[in-house]
């Protein structure tokens, strides 16, 4: 990701970069967009908008650098600046609570869950998906980036424009919240026996 070093690409080179470096990530981008918007048409629009911007600013992209992270960053910004504003969805996360969580004594609360491996494996896809979808968008996002897309902490920090320490604390909190949701499902469905 490079904002200050502009590249000089010919039209042909631009098209090659687009095909070889950007297009292979379109399904991941669409999945991310869908998990943010919960609507297939909105997700498609968000992906299209992201690729339009990526192509328009392709001279800011340095070949050989992390195209996927660059694209995810554009999509995340488009979601916040355009989509979320349009749908007037306020950010619901209490950041103070998030950022102080990691250093609090509550950090040990991860071990209080009754969840077991076989309980998790017995769950239906819908239950897992609903639990993820029910998280506030900022918590949902870190789980998608880390657990679904396999981004490293430093890549996530760049995509989200936050320090690595915040990535870690937010991820930790998101995982605990997800476990709580799954634990609630398990209790409701009588999985925990």
């Amino acid at each position: 990701m490079s904002d200050d070093k502009r590249q000089n690409y010919t039209q042909k080179e631009k098209e090659v970069i687009f095909d070889k470096e950007f297009l292979p990530h379109m399904d991941s981008m669409y999945n991310f967009a869908y998990r943010l918007t919960f609507d297939e048409d909105d997700a498609k629009d968000l992906v299209q908008d992201t690729y339009l911007k990526a192509y328009r600013f392709i001279t800011s992209f340095e070949q050989g650098t992390n195209a996927k992270a660059w694209l995810f960053r554009i999509l995340k910004n488009s979601f916040i600046n355009d989509f979320r504003k349009k749908s007037k969805q306020p950010a619901k996360v209490d950041y103070q609570e998030v950022e102080t969580f990691y250093n609090s004594e509550d950090v040990d609360s991860a071990i209080t869950t009754d969840l077991r491996v076989d309980t998790v494996q017995d769950m239906l896809g819908d239950e897992i998906s609903n639990a993820l979808n029910s998280l506030d968008v900022d918590f949902r996002t870190v789980i998608i980036l880390c657990d679904l897309e396999g981004f490293k902490y430093d890549e996530m920090a760049k995509i989200l424009d936050i320090p690595i320490g915040t990535v870690r604390s937010r991820l930790h909190r998101a995982r605990n919240l997800l476990k709580e949701k799954l634990n609630d499902y398990a209790k409701k469905m009588g999985y925990n026996k």
Partner: peptide
């Protein structure tokens, strides 16, 4: 949990 997420929440394709 991570395995279940990958299996069930990474299925949207264009």
């Amino acid at each position: 949990i991570r395995e279940m997420l990958k299996k069930n929440c990474k299925n949207k394709q264009l």
